[in-house]
Design a protein around this nucleic acid. Sequence first.
DNA 1: CGCCCTACCTACTCGCCAGTAGGCTTACCA
DNA 2: TGGTAAGCCTACTGGCGAGTAGGTAGGGCG
Lengths: 233, 233
Amino acid sequence: MHAEQPVRSGRAKRLPRAVRERQIMDAAVDVFSRLGFHAASMDEISEVAGISKPMLYAYLGSKEELFATCIRRESTRMMEAISSGVESEEPPDVQLWSGLRAFFGFVGENRAGWQVLHRQASSQGGPFAEELADMRGRAISLVAALLVHSSDFTNVPRAGDKEAESLAAALVGAGESLADWWLDNPEEPAGVVAARLMNLVWMGFGDLVAGDVWHPPSRRSERGTERGAEEGA
Amino acid sequence: MHAEQPVRSGRAKRLPRAVRERQIMDAAVDVFSRLGFHAASMDEISEVAGISKPMLYAYLGSKEELFATCIRRESTRMMEAISSGVESEEPPDVQLWSGLRAFFGFVGENRAGWQVLHRQASSQGGPFAEELADMRGRAISLVAALLVHSSDFTNVPRAGDKEAESLAAALVGAGESLADWWLDNPEEPAGVVAARLMNLVWMGFGDLVAGDVWHPPSRRSERGTERGAEEGA
DNA sequence: CGCCCTACCTACTCGCCAGTAGGCTTACCA
DNA sequence: TGGTAAGCCTACTGGCGAGTAGGTAGGGCG
């Protein structure tokens, strides 16, 4: 799970700065995700990275800077993974579906990064929460925009932005929570988990218990009550 | 927001142990919720509680014990608040509605306690995560049972327990996240926020963008597309 | 009044960890 | 081949915070 770099003994091999920085970041994400910001020590990070502490300070600055850099890197990666999977010309439900698949795909590929983002960062008070809340805010805005856009497709009086934002917050939270649940129940493929959430938020329990499910685009025109939307990752 | 006890100067007034313990617990929840486990210091907790550090140790034991006790107290309070609001003879949607109202009511009354529960506890690795995951697990089980029970009301082939559990996890996460959002947007009453989540998870976006909303029990038989379910806390 | 138990305190120890001073080695290039 | 800069190190300091030793006050009860 966290075997980043073998523990070093003696002097480390000379490597160009960019490479070392990547190693250090990987190690930092690993350690922060396991221990949280305060419990993680720079000594342990440097050890996992296979270098000595002064290198760490020379390249990445203080502990806080390092942590903030980790959050930025991981959140950027994640937002890119999600937005690159979504085509804005598609209908809203398909966009949502693509986003969810991209999200769960990212989490599955990148568990340590996800933990840093979701758990550790939000609990620290400093500049991190800010950094993290920022990304979370971007995700929520993305979803909120999608929702507002959705109602333009219909003749409904447009819901207030506040309302859309709160619903988006709920959806993002559902995704986070389900992702956590998934980490403890990893046997299922990403696609199935994503499909569950899609069904929940698009159809609602009311429809689900009545047997109505949402269908992925490929079988869009068929009607029925069979399972649906369960292809793999 | 966190003015528990005025800062003391000199010797504190003699009080019976039970009272002091309550004060200390209140102070601890306050400090832990603001700073998180590691960043919180026993010195600060004792100061906020209006006593000296050795008292703290004499009454509540080590820092870890104190934290665990906080989590236990707050989680018990919350679960009691929720389950006391739900009547198990009601139909599933009404039960869910009652549970959501109770939950948001609790969060509104008890913000510090909520933060300790939701943010701080989950990020620490020790015996706390266990304690907290336990309560979260109870909440998820509660919802999962409700879902499984819901499908008994219909003729749908009963969903797997795993599926119900994952949906419950998503719902609980949505509630947590929406509660956090609410802390940043406190102008709305608890009932409105609860109604939003109810609509989301029961009706789904698909119905919502089409103008269908869920109605609270009092107007159960009416049909229509007006707002609905928005009375106060 | 004197005993003692409980509530409460000041003032430490001690380990851990962020951050640094100062110096050694290897690659590259003039 | 010697200069120099980039990559790397060992070995410290300084402070913070958990936990404790060893007390002082004040109320109840004989």
